[in-house]
Amino acid sequence: MATSLLTLTIPDLAALPAAAAQVRAALAGHTIICFEGEMGAGKTTFIKALGRELGISEEISSPTFALVNEYRTAADQPVYHFDFYRLDDPAEAEGIGASEYFDSGYLCLIEWPGRVEPLLPDHRLTLTLTVTGPSSRELKIEI
């Protein structure tokens, strides 16, 4: 059963940096971060804000077709960003070595994690973005 750690109200895009800073603080000890939310809820947009908070200077974009993008933090640590929306079977993620990424000890940010559920470790955070208005969102962090 999931335990809620934090619920944030994000009234607009201007509030994203502050929300990303709070999420960064909640990451302690977690390397697998799953992002849930309907299409257009802002998963990639939030990951961009979190990336800036982690000191990633590269442009963050959705790896919808590549499945995974690698970025580097200010401390030169890799961050892996996955988008499994287009997968039909977890075996496709196994084909790119997803389990090795998940076991690497480095931060893995995963959009559409339900498509690879059998591959995900139990020890993970789930961030659920819910649309509450034209530019507002609720973000719930669960363990």
Rank of each mutant, 00 (worst) to 15 (best):
I60A: 10
I60D: 09
S61Y: 14
S61G: 12
S61D: 15
S62L: 12
P63D: 14
T64Y: 05
F65V: 10
A66N: 07
A66L: 08
A66Y: 00
A66W: 05
A66M: 11
L67V: 12
L67Q: 03
V68T: 10
V68F: 03
V68N: 06
N69I: 15
N69A: 08
N69P: 01
N69W: 06
N69H: 14
E70W: 02
E70D: 15
E70N: 08
Y71P: 02
Y71S: 13
Y71D: 14
Y71W: 12
R72F: 13
R72V: 13
T73L: 08
A74I: 15
A74V: 15
A75P: 02
A75L: 13
A75S: 14
A75R: 07
D76Y: 11
D76S: 11
Q77W: 06
Q77I: 08
Q77T: 12
P78L: 10
V79D: 11
Y80W: 04
H81G: 09
H81K: 03
H81E: 15
D83E: 14
D83T: 09
D83R: 02
D83G: 02
D83K: 01
F84Q: 01
F84H: 02
F84R: 00
F84V: 09
Y85K: 03
Y85E: 13
R86G: 09
R86K: 02
R86N: 10
R86V: 06
L87T: 02
D88K: 05
D88P: 00
D89C: 03
D89W: 02
P90F: 02
A91D: 15
E92T: 03
E92S: 01
A93R: 00
A93N: 04
E94Q: 12
E94N: 05
G95W: 05
G95A: 14
G97I: 12
S99T: 13
S99L: 13
S99D: 09
S99M: 09
E100A: 13
E100I: 04
Y101L: 10
F102Q: 08
D103P: 00
S104I: 12
S104G: 10
S104R: 05
G105E: 14
Y106D: 13
Y106E: 15
L107K: 01
L107D: 11
L107E: 13
L109C: 10
L109Q: 05
L109S: 08
I110W: 04
I110A: 02
I110S: 04
I110C: 07
I110M: 05
E111Q: 05
E111D: 12
W112L: 05
W112I: 13
W112P: 00
P113Q: 11
P113C: 07
G114L: 04
R115M: 07
V116W: 01
V116T: 08
V116A: 08
E117T: 03
E117D: 11
L119E: 06
L119D: 01
L119G: 00
L120K: 00
L120A: 07
P121S: 09
P121I: 15
P121R: 07
D122R: 08
H123A: 13
H123S: 09
H123I: 07
H123Y: 12
H123N: 12
R124S: 05
L125T: 10
T126G: 03
T126M: 12
